[in-house]
C-alpha cells in the first residue's frame, strides 16, 4: 500500500513542472469563462495521466521501475489508483473557477452537479480503455495512442450539443433524475466498477510477464 503512495508521489515529482502549465491552463479557462466541464475537468485529468504514463516508458525508465523491490502488479495498481488524485485535482480546480466566477459576479447559474460528476466519472472510464493499450504497446505505440485519446476528448467537447439535439431528454434526465430509482443507480455503479476492474485485470495480464 505504501508503495502505491510512493509510486504516485513519483509521478507527481516527475510531472511537477507540467502541473504549473496546468495552472496556467485553468487561469485561461477561468478568464474566458468557458463553461464546459469536459474542458475544465476531463481534459486536464487525461493530460496529467498521459504525461505521467509516457514518462514511465521513455528511454529505459520501465527497467528502472521493474528493478525496484516491488511485485509488478503494484506498478499497475498504482497507475489505476493515481486516477483518484488526478480527478480530485480537476474537480477542485473546476470548483475554484466556478467560485471565482460567482465571486466576480460573472457566473449566476447554479453549478450543474450531476453533469460535472458525470464528466469526472468519465475519466476513469476513458483511462480504463487507455491503460491496457498503454501496457500493451509500450514506448513504441504510445505517441499514437496518446493522440487518439486526446482527439476523443476534443471531439467529445463539440459533440455534446449535437447529442443534446438528438436526445433532447438526456441532459434533462441527467440533471433532474431523482434518487428514486436507486436500483438503477446501483446497477450502473456496479457495472462501472466492474468495467474498471476488468481493465485492471487485462493490464495485469499484459504487463506482468512482459519482457522489458
Amino acid at each position: 500500500m505504501y508503495s502505491s503512495f510512493y509510486l504516485i508521489r513519483k509521478d507527481f515529482i516527475l510531472t511537477r513542472k507540467y502541473l504549473l502549465l496546468l495552472l496556467l491552463f485553468y487561469m485561461v479557462i477561468g478568464y474566458s469563462n468557458l463553461e464546459s466541464y469536459i474542458v475544465s475537468a476531463l481534459f486536464p485529468s487525461m493530460l496529467m495521466l498521459m504525461n505521467a504514463c509516457s514518462l514511465d516508458v521513455q528511454h529505459n525508465n520501465q527497467r528502472f521501475l521493474v528493478s525496484l523491490p516491488l511485485p509488478r502488479h503494484q506498478l499497475v495498481l498504482a497507475k489505476y489508483l493515481s486516477l483518484l488524485p488526478y480527478a480530485a485535482i480537476s474537480l477542485t480546480c473546476t470548483l475554484l473557477i466556478y467560485l471565482a466566477g460567482v465571486a466576480t459576479g460573472r457566473t449566476i447559474e447554479p453549478i450543474a452537479w450531476r453533469e460535472l460528476l458525470l464528466v469526472i466519472a468519465c475519466f476513469p472510464l476513458l483511462a480504463s480503455f487507455y491503460f491496457p493499450l498503454y501496457y500493451w504497446l509500450g514506448q513504441k505505440g504510445m505517441q499514437i495512442v496518446n493522440m487518439i485519446f486526446m482527439m476523443l476528448v476534443m471531439i467529445g467537447y463539440p459533440a455534446i450539443p449535437s447529442v443534446n439535439k438528438k436526445f433532447p431528454g438526456l441532459f434533462d434526465w441527467i440533471n433532474s433524475a431523482t434518487t428514486d430509482n436507486i436500483l438503477l443507480w446501483a446497477i450502473g455503479g456496479m457495472a462501472y466498477l466492474f468495467f474498471i476492474y476488468c481493465s485492471y485485470l487485462i493490464s495485469l495480464r499484459v504487463f506482468v510477464k512482459k519482457d522489458i
Binding site: L14, L55, Q58
Partner: peptide, 20 residues
C-alpha cells in the same frame, strides 16, 4: 520483491528519469 530489496543493480544504460 523481497529479493530485489537486497539487490543493487547497475545497468549498462541509463535507466533513470533523465529530466530529474
Amino acid at each position: 520483491a523481497a529479493n530485489k530489496d537486497r539487490i543493487g543493480y547497475v545497468s549498462d544504460e541509463n535507466i533513470y528519469y533523465e529530466h530529474l
